[in-house]
Design a protein around this nucleic acid. Structure first.
Lengths: 122, 122
DNA sequence: CGCTACTGACTACATCTGTAGTTTCATCGA
DNA sequence: TCGATGAAACTACAGATGTAGTCAGTAGCG
């Protein structure tokens, strides 16, 4: 069971999943555009993630290099499961049905998913 | 935009979506099995939901009757959207792909979803 | 060799969450 | 009528979260 990751922490993880290892400053630079966090804020989030053992640290002279210890897929699997359990009784079909009914699915989406499912069976 | 509803509050909402209006005591009875919350806890959660205007209150003598002011579907739509946005870049296809790869989809699920999509197109 | 600047460590603090306890007011039964 | 009971309102409090500020140490530059 992967530790709970908060919304802000998740932003940091996305950066590290894209490229790692990175220093705190590099991470801060990469989130600077989307979020407007200060370097200190990013460092706090990195510390919390390290405390949860979701990322690892490696000394590099006077700085630290941070890398994810959890695969993005592993994390997504856990979160998706919790989400589907909590809101759709653990069944994926109602989720897809809901998204479809709520017009969240374009015709292209539908075609893509159909193709995907065909491959799965094959 | 529906106000953020916490996990515990969501449990209360599920009860009210199933049947409403209900008194605080009735709600407490209905969550007693699954969660082990005290009546006081349930009342606190009801107050917070009422403060967020997610449920409405109606005086009934010396008690209150609580009812949802937000449809379950509306709520699900918002939460699902946020979920897909945050974790799958707003695209549903990668979500389905992920669930599929993570073996979260049984053959039956796949058949169900295919049928669902066929109806959508028709 | 000493000062400056960058880095991690520690501290801060308001708000949200989970989980109640306590107080007060009204009502129903004896 | 008066006390017990039940309901809402108010208070509590620790841990998580978002968002930093401050302190202290070290390495590199002059």
């Amino acid at each position: 069971m992967v530790e709970r990751i908060s919304d802000a922490e998740h932003e940091i993880m996305e950066v590290l999943w894209q490229k790692a290892p990175l220093t705190a400053t590099e991470v801060a630079d990469r989130v600077a555009d989307s979020k407007g966090w200060s370097l200190q804020t990013v460092k706090t989030l990195l510390s919390r993630l390290a405390a949860k053992a979701v990322i690892g640290t490696e000394r590099d002279g006077r700085r630290f290099l941070y890398s994810p210890l959890v695969e993005r897929d592993t994390y997504l699997a856990g979160v998706s499961r919790k989400f589907v359990d909590r809101l759709f009784g653990g069944k994926v079909t109602p989720l897809v049905a809901h998204l479809a009914e709520a017009d969240e699915l374009s015709d292209d989406d539908i075609r893509e998913i159909e193709e995907l499912l065909r491959e799965l069976k094959g």
